[in-house]
Every structure is written in structure tokens, then in C-alpha cells.
């Protein structure tokens, strides 16, 4: 399988996602939420592609560190910026964005956190990459690309002068 990796590949995925989002949510004045850190990068690009009027407020960001399910096993995560939702979520249609959907645990945590802010009308999940390995019944609505990887493979989004995807094999030397 070919993995979309270059900046141009990622941009093509983002363009397709933006078109699909316009179809799904165009008439719903949605609010945009990115999950730290990769999901925020993807959400920022989608916001640019969809234009300033598409979303009803500026980008919200979620740091799911306090909602993880592994605190009793590994303790505190390194610090990242705190969650910041600059809008009320009650009765609104939300577009939740992450970079890679894998186990589904991050999305579970993000949904729990969103509901501590209020009761949205709906949540639509958009991810740049969807891979196999789900551990929870969670699926994305809008997908840049689906990829099948082996257990020791990991796909990671980087952001140095533009978004790129990188395939890593755990345990392998660089």
C-alpha cells in the first residue's frame, strides 16, 4: 500500500476532507474542535480551506490529558496546552478533528471532555488517517485516508514547514 507522506499528499487529503465537510455540515453553522497536538494542526488547515465564514467561532482545542484511561498505570503526561473552547457547545453541531484514529481511546476521552462543557446537538468526527486496531466501538465520519498497518507500525503527523506523514516501525533503527 502506498502511504501518503509528502506535503502535497497531505494537502490532497485535506482538500477532499474539506469538500466532504462542506457537504455534511454546510448548513449547520458548525463549531470546530481540534485534539492536541496533531488534531489541532489538521483543524487549522481545514479552517483555512473552508474559509472564515464556514465555522461559527474560532478554533477550539482539547487537551485530553485529564480524561485518559491510563493515569493509574503511567501517571501524568508531559504538559501540553490546556483545553480551550472559546464557545458554548450546548445544542451546537461540532466537528471534532484528530490526526490519526487508531485504538479509539483518545476520541472516547475527547467526547467525555466535550460533554463536561455541555450537551452538543451532534459531534462529527474527521480524521486525516484512519488505521486498523480499534479497541472501542468508535468510527470516523470523514476520513482522509484509511490505511492497514501491522502492530509494530505507527503513522505520525509532523509539522515542520507544513504537514507530513511519517511511517515508523517500532524497534527498528532509523
Amino acid at each position: 500500500m502506498t502511504i501518503p507522506s509528502t506535503q502535497a499528499d497531505v494537502q490532497a487529503l485535506l482538500n477532499n476532507m474539506a469538500a466532504e465537510i462542506r457537504l455534511c455540515l454546510g448548513d449547520r453553522q458548525p463549531l470546530l474542535i481540534g485534539i492536541h497536538t496533531g488534531g489541532v494542526w489538521v483543524a487549522e488547515q481545514l479552517a483555512i480551506l473552508l474559509g472564515t465564514d464556514f465555522f461559527d467561532a474560532s478554533l477550539g482545542t482539547l487537551n485530553i490529558a485529564y480524561y485518559r484511561d491510563d493515569f493509574t498505570r503511567i501517571g501524568m503526561h508531559p504538559q501540553v496546552s490546556p483545553s480551550d473552547l472559546p464557545f458554548a457547545v450546548d445544542d451546537r453541531h461540532l466537528l471534532l478533528v484528530d490526526d490519526v484514529l487508531h485504538s479509539g481511546r483518545t476520541i472516547r476521552a475527547a467526547l467525555n471532555e466535550i460533554f463536561d462543557y455541555g450537551r452538543p446537538a451532534s459531534v462529527t468526527l474527521a480524521v486525516l488517517v484512519e488505521r486498523n486496531g480499534r479497541e472501542l466501538p468508535i468510527q470516523a465520519d470523514i476520513i482522509g485516508q484509511s490505511i492497514n498497518l501491522t502492530k509494530d507500525q505507527q503513522i505520525k503527523l509532523s509539522n515542520d514547514d507544513g504537514l507530513k506523514l511519517e511511517l515508523k516501525t517500532m524497534g527498528a533503527t532509523k
Binding site: Y67, F71, Q79, S81, P82, D84, E113, F115, D116, G118
Partner: peptide, 24 residues
């Protein structure tokens, strides 16, 4: 500094509808 940085992150929780997180 880490204690203060983490406190800074926790201080935003007060502005939510549900003023708590499930960490502990």
C-alpha cells in the same frame, strides 16, 4: 515551575459547566 504550570492548566476548569475532570 512545573507545579505552577500545571496549576495554570487546571485553573481553566472552573469556567466549565462541569467544574471537574476525572483524573483522580
Amino acid at each position: 515551575t512545573e507545579i505552577m504550570d500545571r496549576a495554570e492548566q487546571f485553573s481553566g476548569i472552573t469556567n466549565r459547566q462541569v467544574k471537574k475532570v476525572p483524573l483522580l
